[in-house]
Write a protein that binds this DNA or RNA. Structure first.
Lengths: 362, 362
DNA sequence: ATTGACAAAGAAAACGTTTTCCTATATAAT
DNA sequence: ATTATATAGGAAAACGTTTTCTTTGTCAAT
């Protein structure tokens, strides 16, 4: 029923080989007339190459596996969006697997992908395997994107958390804050290490002494931001600004400030991290630093295809920078409180590092 | 390099055919001894069937396409999670395509899936195609899940919005509210039609007269909930409760109530719909009705496999019920304000319909 | 004893491509 | 005039399975 390559060959009065050569733009020489004839016939018959059959012969399936540890993580959709976009432009498709942090599921998934002879694998937010382990399980190129632990493995694309933290602190410093507290995430995460480093570096750039009493540790959840902020606010010389290592904790901070009878941003400025959707519509809307998910996704796909095409053997760990999104929680946004996300300020502020902003903004 | 079926056959001293029969549990009789021998050898050599080669012969790829209109929609992750879970248990994999509402991309995607000889397609939140159109584009079974328009097409799995709206209104009525306003979504959406119907039905069940002045229309966004709520609150006999057709608008309602110098839930009770993540951690946390995304996803996958296995020709449109999640915004939740989601109350309240709760709860 | 049915297994065809050979011209170089 | 080279295309092998067809026994029923 479906028309095959042989059907086209017969109808065009040529051999299989010729049709295949025309359709795959083979380097084998083909007379211009023949080429046109074949293309015309193929078009007319509505021929669709069978990628399964092709894959059997060429051992290339134009399919990559995407392994996701937790499909409900808020970063997954934009990351996969970037991946998909790039892949589609290069005629690749993606098989997505959700492993739910289960190593057994993940191993089975790799097994399954191997059976399908996919061309490569992208691990999203994965941390269970090292590059070597993966290579042993599936002899295909792979890339890690948004690796949460040991991010500097080869073949990984991760956010530049140090830079992002500097953006946040820089913004607060520009606004005149000198007692800037920091609520970090749990130990062990790369994000935690690097955001702290960025915080310290930017403080140093402004000649603000580092004060351990201004640094707390949460667990990424709202409640922890709330609790730690309460402690920070109870200090004798309380901070004038609090930078939380993610938006959820920043929201907890805002609640704590409000419960203490203070106002955000008037009494305490708050900056978050991640640019989660709610950051734009809670009250006050949260100034934050974006996770460059889509860009990371794109890049990881680009790198994977480069590995597949053997244009590279290994990819250097790559950092992707986020942007500062200025909203209400830090007092810098102008104009009325609004629900729309301020795209303009993202662009305007994105390169504000201390070198360009040695003095407070106003 | 990789070990093939012929390798296994040689090593076991039998023919290809025998190995294949053993490994696929064919109905062809096999001596028990031979079977064991083959299995042992396959295991020992680490044989992995080549699904590409198998697919070429059997015309079954154990792959389904999942077409998503907008991968950033908040419902997509849980829906695909349900789909993946079910598929994995049945050894199927999913190729995901994000069409970004672009019919051209979608058509190309279908074309691509057809080339890959996938076994079926699931359309998630799609509305651009009718069942017939799809069948013309790709001669494989398909299912729609969470169809936003014309939801009662054959082969679709959609939320039971009428039931969900009744749950919400019932809850408010149980709490003693009699002037219950409703902020609906934009015209044309199935959700809009059905949630209004549910609102009216439940009012009728409580013998509360329907008052058009208490019904407004938003556009699903926070701002619209805010604006419409302001209008409702300005009425001479203002409502004591407002049911918003989604959580974003419910949040806008809360802001409007607060801006009017009133309190939620003390002065005005608010109920939302969807159970978005933020509903659990905004202040006050929003009482809402869940979208049964994961269940819908599972079910759609189940139906698709049924179609693929030709156990059915067509699937009747199927409604999936959500649950009421009681939080702070309606005044019914007991205990302190807390960040954790109250799993218990979901279960406890889920079957409260007017028949079981003819009178206010307290 | 002959036939029929069944179990068990192998040989070979088939799936739809790509690719390796091979052949037949035409043209260029000796 | 012969040989080399390039162009163009066909025949057939190959990819790794499944499945059809065929064969060989074995056992039971006539």
């Amino acid at each position: 029923m479906p028309v095959s390559l042989v059907d086209v060959a017969k109808a065009a009065g040529v051999s299989n080989a010729t049709v295949s050569r025309v359709l795959t733009n083979s380097s084998h020489p083909i007379a211009e007339e023949t080429r046109r004839k074949v293309l015309a016939v193929a078009e007319e018959l509505g021929y669709r190459p069978n990628l399964i059959a092709r894959g059997l012969r060429t051992e290339q399936t134009y399919t990559v596996g995407v392994i996701v540890e937790n499909i409900l993580s808020p970063f997954i959709p934009p990351i996969t969006r970037g991946i998909h976009d790039y892949l589609r432009q290069h005629n690749y498709s993606a098989i997505i697997i959700n492993s739910d942090w289960d190593p057994i599921v993940e191993t089975e998934a790799l097994e399954n992908l191997a059976r399908r002879h996919i061309d490569g694998v992208i691990f999203v937010e994965s941390y269970t395997r090292s590059s070597d382990e993966v290579s042993k399980l599936i002899p295909k190129p792979h890339v890690f994107v948004h690796r949460l632990f040991n991010a500097l493995n080869p073949n990984s694309v991760v956010p530049d958390d140090l830079y992002g933290a500097r953006l946040a602190v820089n913004h607060l410093a520009c606004l005149g804050h000198r007692r800037i507290a920091f609520i970090n995430g749990p130990e062990g995460w790369d994000a935690t290490v690097n955001r702290l480093a960025g915080y310290r570096e930017e403080l140093a750039a402004w000649d603000i002494p580092f004060d351990p009493a201004l640094v707390g540790r949460g667990d990424w959840e709202v409640q922890s931001g709330f609790t730690v902020a309460q402690q920070l606010l109870a200090q004798p010389a309380r901070p004038t600004a609090i930078f939380a290592a993610n938006d959820l904790m920043a929201l907890g901070v805002i609640y704590a400030v409000q419960d203490a009878g203070l106002r955000v941003p008037d009494d305490i400025a708050v900056v978050g991290y991640d640019d989660r959707d709610f950051a734009g519509f809670v009250r006050p809307a949260i100034t934050t630093v974006t996770m460059p998910c889509e860009a990371m996704g794109r890049l990881s796909a680009e790198f994977l295809l480069r590995l597949i095409d053997q244009e590279a053997d290994v990819i250097e760990p790559t950092l992707v920078q986020g942007q500062l999104v200025i909203r209400q929680s830090c007092g810098a946004a102008t104009g009325e409180w609004q629900f729309e996300r301020e795209q303009g300020s993202v662009i305007r502020q994105q390169r504000l590092l201390h070198t360009e902003c040695r003095e407070p903004l106003t």
